[in-house]
């Protein structure tokens, strides 16, 4: 089941990219995350989070791209919910209090390592600076509750 999930997240991002309309005015960049393996070993829980070092690597890869490109707008095709961390944080840094979040999700994603081990369930709490401490500290300007509509 877990392997199915990893492959599906990865494949889903590729599929969405293929389905998305091409726009020559819009640069498309793939974040170089590690592809799931055929015989994927069970991922290790690190500091209460599954494959935390890999998650952090992926976040840093996305951050490097955003820092280099300095876009005004970002569309992400993922992947799991963690794909929103870097773009939302970057755009909040860029536009400050002009920015609000509308969160459309069957889960609020406000968990933390004390109650759940998958980082994708902590993303909104991370953006508020109150999720996984290691990921939350990457958010320079945490979102307030008033700037989030769920």
């Amino acid at each position: 089941m877990a392997i199915w999930v990893y492959h599906s997240y990865y494949f889903g991002a590729q599929l969405l990219n293929w389905l998305a309309p091409q726009n020559p005015q819009q640069k498309s960049i793939q974040v170089p995350v590690v592809a799931p393996q055929k015989d994927q070993p069970k991922l290790k829980v690190e500091s209460g989070v599954t494959a935390k070092s890999t998650v952090l690597d992926n976040v840093h890869q996305a951050q490097k791209i955003v820092d280099a490109e300095q876009p005004n707008r970002i569309i992400t095709l993922g992947g799991n919910c963690m794909v929103s961390q870097v773009p939302f944080s970057y755009l909040h840094d860029k536009y400050g209090d002009d920015v609000g979040i509308i969160w459309i999700d069957a889960h609020p994603d406000i968990s933390n390592p004390q109650i759940f081990s998958n980082e994708h369930a902590m993303i909104l709490a991370n953006l508020m600076g109150k999720g996984d401490p290691d990921l939350s500290k990457l958010i320079k300007h945490p979102f307030s509750n008033n700037s989030i509509c769920m």
Binding site: C81, S84, P87, F88, L91, H92, Y95, D97, D98, V99, G100, I101, I102, W103, I104, D105, A106, H107, L124, N146, S147, C149
Partner: peptide, 25 residues
Amino acid sequence: KIQKWIDQHHFSKILVHFDIDVLDR
């Protein structure tokens, strides 16, 4: 209600997080 929230806080930019799990939990 959403429009009221946008107006109240003077948001000129909205970030939308959409997870397809809302289509069928």
